[in-house]
Design a protein around this nucleic acid. Structure first.
Lengths: 245, 245
DNA sequence: CGCGCCATTGACTCTGGTCAACGCTAGTGG
DNA sequence: CCACTAGCGTTGACCAGAGTCAATGGCGCG
């Protein structure tokens, strides 16, 4: 168990030195980029890491800002998005525990990121991280694998946005989120949906009304049950069929 | 000048030993992944490379097939796409000279690729290439930069597919293609469009009819002139305005 | 010359968007 | 303790942008 923490309201509370999220007992180590590191390297990167907490709705970084830091998410959920000048928004991904933000290592962020739930991260200064990376090709290799995986997810999302109906989008969204939660140890049939309907709509290229109507339709036909902050997937086979059609 | 070549109809004609596309006088070296290599390394990779020609409409590789090779495109244009079981297609990108196919280095291809025009590539066995990569971290770093750039393009495409109108999609497509052609030395106001209307539609998440109508509409309003296998961008400012709105 | 492929255009349809009303819940303050 | 409000989600009625279906045109090729 971690020690109980007093959460304050200021964004990005740094927890360094509080014995929090030390690499040694990091819950996401095996599934994060850090899995590429041996015990000695783990102590090295531990000393570079700044464990930090972001309360729900706070901003991790904003598109076009100088990329001073990169992040390894240890807990919570983050939305990554781009805005058009007139305010239209496209969410390009939801980041979960184990995900890495700032993969591109560019000097400016390509997207904006804010916490959906209370979120904990390991923050690294980008310069320190890239310097460490230059000494550890196997870590770079792992980072490249993560980036390739992201690219693959992005291509799947292009298929969804370009060629799928509203029903299929919702089904595919539920299936892929279920699989991602399973990877981080949450295997329940009840899928938490901490993001708002607007977030889901902006991820799937729909409107909030269409998302709501589609949930209702799926609920009426018995394949899901809508519960507060989530859905119960009562007919997985049917959802999978819709998702992969 | 290269020696004149007799093109035969067989796909994937190997030009090895014909003095074609040697790294020393490779036209795309400075903009491709190879720019990370010094002269000595260039001779090393030269010996791994199989210069190969793919005639228009031939297949480079197919989604889910074992990824035996990776490719550096030196000339031509390739479409990368995914298919749904019922035949719906989403083109996830057009690859031009200087682009690298197989960035993910996974053991199966994540997309299918076929040549739109006659295309020349440097083909590498994936195992040989990854072995070389293990000795050259700076090449891995360059590959990672390429993958990150691809990811960024994919995110832009998600915004386009999720949140832009047909007019905006066409305008954004023309602008980004123009910029990519400019990078490889083609700066004319007349933009070649070697791909079919169906290809454009499947890239932009539209139908062939909507693409055609939108071209006609833009032509009628004077911002483009449709020419055989391309368009002349007669009012760049207007197109850019539409594209970034 | 005539066939086949691709692109264009028109008429009509439909999926998903827009606009609006309403309900539920949590938070606030009298 | 409850009235009031604000924010989010749901639902209904209507609308419009893009899709579908079909006819026609243009061009390259055998």
């Amino acid at each position: 168990m971690e020690p109980a923490l007093q959460w304050n309201d200021s964004p990005a509370a740094c927890l360094h030195g509080l014995g929090v999220s030390a690499c040694a007992d990091c819950r996401v180590r095996q599934i994060s980029v850090c899995a590429a590191l041996d015990p000695h390297e783990l102590t090295e990167i531990d000393s570079l890491s700044h464990p930090t907490a972001f309360p729900a709705k706070s901003t991790l970084f904003t598109q076009e800002d100088p990329a001073s830091a990169v992040f390894n998410i240890t807990e919570g959920m983050v939305r990554l998005y781009k805005l058009l000048p007139d305010g239209r928004r496209q969410i390009v991904g939801f980041a979960l525990a184990g995900d890495f933000l700032g993969l591109a290592l560019l000097d400016r962020y390509g997207v904006s990121a804010d916490a959906i739930t209370d979120t904990k991260v390991c923050r690294f200064s980008r310069s320190a991280f890239t310097a460490f990376l230059d000494k550890k090709p196997h870590l770079l290799r792992r980072l490249h694998e993560f980036a390739s995986h992201e690219l693959s997810l992005a291509q799947d999302q292009m298929v969804l946005l370009g060629r799928r109906t509203a029903d299929e989008r919702i089904a595919a969204f539920l299936m892929s989120l279920k699989e991602r939660f399973a990877r981080i140890g949450h295997t329940s049939i009840t899928l938490p949906l901490p993001m708002s309907r607007q977030d889901i709509a902006d991820f799937l290229g729909l409107t909030i009304e269409t998302v709501s109507r589609t949930f209702s339709k799926l609920a009426k036909s018995g394949v899901i049950v809508v519960v507060p902050d989530g859905v119960r997937l009562t007919n997985l086979a049917q959802i999978k069929a819709l998702a992969t059609r």
